[in-house]
Design a protein around this nucleic acid. Structure first.
Lengths: 229, 229
DNA sequence: GACTTAATTTTGATTACACAAAATTAAACC
DNA sequence: GGTTTAATTTTGTGTAATCAAAATTAAGTC
């Protein structure tokens, strides 16, 4: 039986929840899952037990849930569809990167394999979506390269933005407006723990200070950044 | 409250069912509706009563159902989305006209108003889909021009195919292969009631004989057809 | 007008998903 | 170790959509 939209959403949420958990002890608490999905805790419990029955997750009562191999494969396919669709909507349909998430959220559950293949081909088998999130391949492999955030990267050194890990439209517009989108070269000038802030030197030597919570959502790479001319 | 996919499918089925009913006494029997949707008769009854509650249809027990003004508007919007998507998949995504129906059937329930508007614009506000079916406008108006079929059009006279009213992939491929797609100019050479057949003269003077049931699915226009050179 | 037939409606269950609120468990504290 | 607290699970309900099968209605026949 093919998975319902609801099942796909649970698997996706578990996958995404796991990834932002401290490494390799990835067991997602039910509360996290429930609030990520916007459902009552009891609902998540019931559903997860059903998913465990179907072999898509491993469930440890009172501890949490993790994806099985089968569940991870399925989650990767949902994410693949989601991210290909987002990129398609931006590149081909000309929508803004801040306004494609909700459409993709719906479309990911109904596009056929044929159509997704067509989109993938049309986009030239892209590796990342407009936010820099990696696009799983058709065989379920997700390219993983560990990266810094603006909180962890070296200071006084040019870095390239690789990924913006927040789908909030207002935040994305802010990022776009200040030239912090994937591909941009920037530099961390200073971090102030007490002020909870990070000062950045961006394009055209524009300076901007953002909060640490925001900074943690911008991932960067130290390689490939040209030193300043 | 916005209508579920199921509700949209019921309204669409009622709309389509009504149109192929003898004019103006359009009251769709429950049995027709149930089999069009592939559900048990009782299911259709229950659902239609609920639709009547919401004011989307008028329901006459034991007689049938028809759309209310509100229901017709909604059905037109579903059809608009469906047909724009079909045309988009053919023109932009390069899929065959015989393989887009199922995708459109799913996508029609989830595409946002914004995305549909984008598609409509991108296609140049088209009037018909790949099968020649009229695309309702954004305000709910459905352009209706009465037309003949290959069963009713004048004989020995050039006509232009305007519409193919069957979504079956095999049938569509047959139509394509024999150059009977919308836009083609053809001519009815003979009809034989007893043999249940219609003989056509097509492109390059190719002759082909098809059954009356198939002929009834090909709609044509007598205007705009050039006389033979 | 009674009888048969075909279509339709009603009835009783089922599945998937959700919530609220009560009950339980695990962890944390003194 | 007993007690509070927070997270989790259970329990009882509700809604949307479906089916199968029984009951009913409308229509046609003799």
């Amino acid at each position: 039986m093919l998975p319902s939209s609801t099942v796909e959403n649970y698997l996706k949420a578990i996958y995404l929840g796991e990834t932002q958990l401290p490494d390799d002890q990835r067991l997602l608490p039910m509360g996290h899952l429930a609030s990520a999905l916007g459902v009552a805790p009891g609902t998540a419990t019931t559903m997860v037990k059903a998913l465990a029955e179907s072999g898509l997750v491993e469930y440890e009562p009172y501890n949490g849930v993790r994806l099985s191999a089968a569940g991870e494969k399925l989650a990767a396919m949902v994410l693949r569809r989601h991210r290909l669709i987002e990129l398609f909507l931006v590149r081909v349909m000309g929508l803004g990167w801040d306004e494609v998430h909700d459409d993709a959220e719906q479309l990911e559950h109904v596009v056929s394999e044929r159509l997704i293949e067509r989109i993938d081909e049309m986009l030239g088998r892209p590796a990342v979506d407009p936010h820099g999130d990696p696009i799983p391949t058709a065989d379920g492999h997700v390219p993983r390269h560990p990266s810094d955030t603006l909180l962890t990267c070296p200071i006084h050194q040019r870095v390239v933005v690789t990924r913006v890990t927040d789908q909030d439209a207002a935040f994305l517009r802010f990022i776009e407006q200040h030239h912090l989108m994937p591909g941009e070269t920037i530099e961390v000038e200073a971090r102030d723990e007490v002020a909870d802030s990070v000062r950045l030197l961006g394009r055209d030597d524009q300076r901007i200070t953002i909060g640490m919570r925001a900074a943690s959502k911008v991932r960067v790479s130290t390689t490939g950044a040209r030193s300043r001319g």
